[in-house]
Each structure stands twice: as C-alpha cells, then as structure tokens.
C-alpha cells in the first residue's frame, strides 16, 4: 500500500535538514511538504498492528463491488436496508436505483423517485419503449478519487482496505467533495453538517458480514468481493466477464463495476 509512510515517506532527518535551512526552509516545509511534516512526526512503528474487532486487519482486504444490471428488479430493498442500517436521513441516499426507459427513436427517460426507496410505479412515457432497466448506484469507492484529492483538511480518505470514508470529527462541512464527486454519491448530512456517504457498511465488513444492500437484495444483483481473498467469486467474474464502470472517461478508477451496463446510463 502506498499509504504506508514508514518506508517511503520523509524521514525525521529529512525534515530536520529542511528546517535547518531557516525560515525559508520552514516556509517550504509548510507550503510544499505539509504532508511530509505530519507523517515524519506521527508515524509509529505500531501503526499497522492496530486491529479491529475479532482481529480484523484492514491491510489484508481490498473490497470490490459488482452490480448485475440484468438482475435488478427495482424493488428498492437495498435503499430501504441501507437507510435502516445506516440511519440515512430522509431524501438523502447512500445508495439509490435509477430507472432507464429508452424508446425506439432513442429518447431516454430516466427517473429515480425518492431514490427508489418507495419502489417504482408504472410510468407512462407515451413513447414506444424498446428497452428498459434498473441501475443501482452507490459510492464507487474510486481508487483515484477526486473527492479525497479535493478534501482540504484530510477528512476524506481511502482506507487500507480500499474504502472511501469521511472522518466525521474532522470534516469542516465545506462540501467541496460533494461538488467533486462525479456520481452524486455524497451529501451534507442535514443534522451532522458533515459530508456523508456510503461506507460499504464497514462496521459489518469487519465482523465478517456483508453490506446491508447486498444482504437484502433478493436477486443477487448486488455482490461484494474482496480482491485480496483467495478464490474470490466477484474478482473472478470481473476478471473473466465484460464489465464496465460509470464515467470511465474521468479516470476515477471505480471499485464498483457493472455487468450489462448500457450506454444511456449517466
């Protein structure tokens, strides 16, 4: 993991050398090497020894997510399960479902009433619909994510196990990350006033359970995998099937991939 700073970060000696160059060096440390300054002084040799419940080791996992569009029936069980599991505030979504209806002439009708939380009703588009499908969405937990890049205070981060999370005690609520997410996965929590988003039910993962959305999907349209696990089914599907990601042109490297995604999907 490149996040580990013991080996490849700036050492204490480097920092001292920089500081020794005087005020100019100080300014340089502050301006260009802020990260180095922090890592040099706070790295403990025991960093990776810290374990979660049941001896969970964050460095031994890397979660991936797979959505099979053809299996989604648009029931909204995942959205409701997510809301219950994570106390998601009303009218905000850590996951949601979009319905696409495409007419013969290429018109695209998209809706997501209350994020699919209350299911979908028959809708009369008045057009000759030739294909239609439901697309579950959630945070893509991008490896090259603009939301973490743009967080000014280091409150948004990528965990060693590949999750994009928000430190709710350090977030200043500037909503820059909400602007930066191309997928609309983030929101400002109306009561906590901090950025909030899908955590892939991290509290469940560390206890060996799966996410609430995956567990409660009746058709298996949503699946969770672990890239670092042996014989991981999802890794195998991704390795051998024609998969797609959302907005690939932005090079965010989403860890959430889709089977059967159509070009109309935004």
């Amino acid at each position: 993991m490149c996040e580990r700073k013991e080996g490849n970060g700036y050492g204490r000696r480097d920092f001292l050398r920089m500081a020794a160059t005087g005020a100019g060096g100080m300014a340089l440390v502050m301006f260009g090497g802020g990260q180095a300054l922090v890592s040099a002084n706070t790295v403990k040799s025991t960093a990776s020894d810290q374990l979660g419940p049941g001896g969970y080791d964050p460095t031994k996992h890397h979660y991936i997510y797979l959505v099979d569009v053809d299996k989604c029936i648009g029931c909204g069980s995942c959205v409701r399960a997510c809301e219950r599991e994570n106390q998601v505030p009303r009218h905000f979504f850590r996951t949601w479902i979009e319905r696409y209806q495409v007419s013969r002439s290429g018109e695209v009708f998209v809706d997501s009433p209350n994020g699919g939380h209350d299911g979908f009703q028959p809708s009369d588009t008045g057009a000759d619909i030739t294909k239609a499908f439901f697309v579950p969405k959630l945070c893509n937990h991008c490896e090259n994510t603009p939301c973490v890049q743009l967080c000014p205070v280091g409150a948004s981060f990528v965990s060693p196990d590949g999750l994009v999370l928000v430190d709710e005690k350090r977030c200043i609520g500037c909503s820059y990350c909400v602007q930066a997410c191309p997928y609309g996965s983030r929101f400002i929590h109306p009561e906590k006033h901090v950025a909030s988003k899908c955590t892939l039910c991290y509290h469940r993962l560390v206890r060996g359970e799966t996410t609430a959305c995956v567990q409660n999907c009746p058709t298996g349209a949503r699946q969770l995998g672990d890239r670092k696990a042996l014989h991981d089914r999802v890794s195998e599907i991704i390795a051998t099937s024609k998969v797609h990601v959302l907005k690939p042109e932005l090079h965010t490297e989403p860890q959430c991939q889709y089977l059967g995604l159509s070009r109309e999907v935004r």
Binding site: E3, K5, T42, K169
Partner: peptide, 9 residues
C-alpha cells in the same frame, strides 16, 4: 493522523 496516510487513522 498520518499513520496510514493523510488522515486520522
């Protein structure tokens, strides 16, 4: 902060 990256571990 900074134990595993630029965030509070």
């Amino acid at each position: 902060f900074g134990e595993m990256g630029y965030y509070r571990y």
